[in-house]
Design a protein around this nucleic acid. Structure first.
Length: 450
DNA sequence: TTTTGAGTTGTTCGA
DNA sequence: GTCGAACAACTCAAA
């Protein structure tokens, strides 16, 4: 059983299949330098913790191997005399390539790579229009996705018969990066407890999600993103626990977005870093020293726009950012600073504990107007209005931008506008939003007219 | 087959 | 302050 992004025992289809078909199962995790090298320290730290917990839940049987999966897996199969390798389907571009290589190398030895299940309620590629082609608009996709349905969660295997460490040689886990952030629970049971707590918290949890999910100053979201990223829990468990009576439509819809973007990336594997809409390749973007300096200010949370700076500092100090604020900082990078969305997406992937290529890249492409079902080009977020609307108390800004902690609420989202001026230690806005908004509109218009 | 209305997350302007 | 219109082009599903 080759674990990848399904670090759990319960509700694990591939694991159940392996145990059903075979007397003994070797639980394996491959520390693949290609993946680890591209993951930020926060995500690697979370992964190392989650693996330690998984290992513990199987009495330290988990076998670690370092290296290219095609090499280490074929070697291990020989060592233990395995009949087959079981794993969940991975639909991301690298996962597809990696699994093809592993399957080929196994096939040369007469062994099989058996794919069972995936990290999604409905596997990417399965939701199609009546004519068999893919959706490119979310709402019709989500209707068909919902109509497709899914099975309920399955139990954990009972007393699995592991053939693992120490009988099978094990290379030891990856070094945990020195990350000192308040990460979400990284154990399977912790993730379930976190979900149950949110689900049962009433109007301050799942039942109030529709109203509270847009307010970054309150814990109105479930924060299940990292657990979903590493498969500590499967989305069908969350979907199973929703019901229409409490109007959980919005939460279900967010899970549908995750599946939509996985589907889009699966069908367009190069869109992790390239525009889905190639016409947008022609838009004028800034470059050079000024662009780099502005990008640095964005990264470090010193743009002079409090809601943007609060968001970026939340990201780098906690490994997570509220979804509403992700949109605000993304809009600012793309439409106020005129920088490539890929710069922002890469920075997000470096710091986000929940960083996932499909959701991240296509969320960015939505904001940049380059993706599926993209925002209209004229939809430019005003960082002051967004702050006033979604952080009306200013508490979110005060928490992450302490220089502004003493400002009255009326001034906190535009400290330059009135009152005693910008507090010591905070900065002038690096750009004038209304000027840059007009500039962005002109550049988008030039693309559509060209 | 053609037409029509709707489509995550917005802002500004003028009445 | 409030409200509606305008800001493209395209996809999709229902009429």
């Amino acid at each position: 059983m080759w674990f990848r992004r399904d670090l759990r025992l319960a509700d694990n289809q591939a694991l159940l299949a392996a145990l059903a078909d075979h007397r003994e199962v070797v639980p394996l995790f491959v520390l693949d330098p290609h993946l680890i090298g591209r993951s930020g320290d926060v995500r690697v730290a979370f992964m190392v913790d989650a693996l330690a917990s998984l290992d513990q839940s199987m009495n330290r049987a988990l076998v670690y191997r370092h290296g290219d999966p095609a090499d280490v897996i074929t070697a291990l199969v020989d060592e233990v005399g395995a009949d087959a390798v079981y794993a969940a389907h991975d639909f991301a571009p690298y996962g597809q390539r990696r699994d093809r290589a592993v399957a080929e190398k196994l096939a040369a030895k007469g062994k099989r790579l058996v794919h069972v299940g995936s990290a999604y309620a409905v596997e990417p590629g399965r939701v199609n229009k009546d004519d068999g082609t893919a959706y490119s608009v979310f709402t019709p996709f989500s209707k068909r996705w919902l109509a497709n349905g899914w099975n309920g969660p399955m139990d954990a295997p009972r007393s699995p018969n592991w053939l693992g460490a120490p009988e099978v040689p094990c290379e030891g886990p990856h070094q945990r990066p020195d990350v000192d952030l308040p990460l979400p629970p990284s154990t399977e049971s912790g993730a379930h407890e976190q979900w149950a707590e949110f689900r049962d918290r009433g109007p301050e949890g799942l039942d109030g999600y529709k109203e509270r999910r847009n307010d970054p100053s309150v814990p109105g979201s479930s924060r299940m993103s990292a657990a979903l990223r590493w498969g500590l829990v499967h989305p069908r468990q969350l979907l199973h626990d929703l019901h229409d009576g409490g109007d959980h439509t919005h939460y279900r819809s967010e899970l549908a977005w995750r599946e939509f973007y996985a589907d889009v990336l699966f069908r367009h594997p190069d869109t992790g870093w390239k525009n889905l809409n190639r016409k947008m390749d022609r838009i004028a973007l800034d470059s050079g020293a000024k662009a780099k300096a502005r990008f640095a200010a964005w990264c470090e949370g010193r743009t002079g726009y409090p809601i943007v700076d609060a968001g970026m500092r939340e990201l780098t100090s906690t490994g997570w950012m509220h979804n509403r604020v992700r949109m605000i900082v993304a809009s600012f990078l793309v439409k106020d600073l005129h920088l490539p969305w890929q710069w922002g997406a890469k920075f997000f992937m470096k710091y986000l504990v929940d960083g996932d290529l499909a959701s991240n890249s296509h969320g960015w492409q939505w904001t940049a107007g380059t993706g599926t079902d993209a925002a209209p080009y004229f939809r430019v977020f005003n960082p002051v209005l967004q702050g006033e609307r979604y952080d009306p108390t200013g508490d979110y800004v005060r928490r992450f931008v302490p220089e502004l902690a003493d400002l009255p609420t009326a001034q906190i989202h535009a400290p330059w506008a009135k009152g005693k001026g910008i507090p010591l230690g905070y900065t002038e806005p690096i750009v004038d939003h209304s000027v840059e908004r007009d500039e962005a509109l002109a550049r988008y218009k030039a693309v559509t007219e060209g």
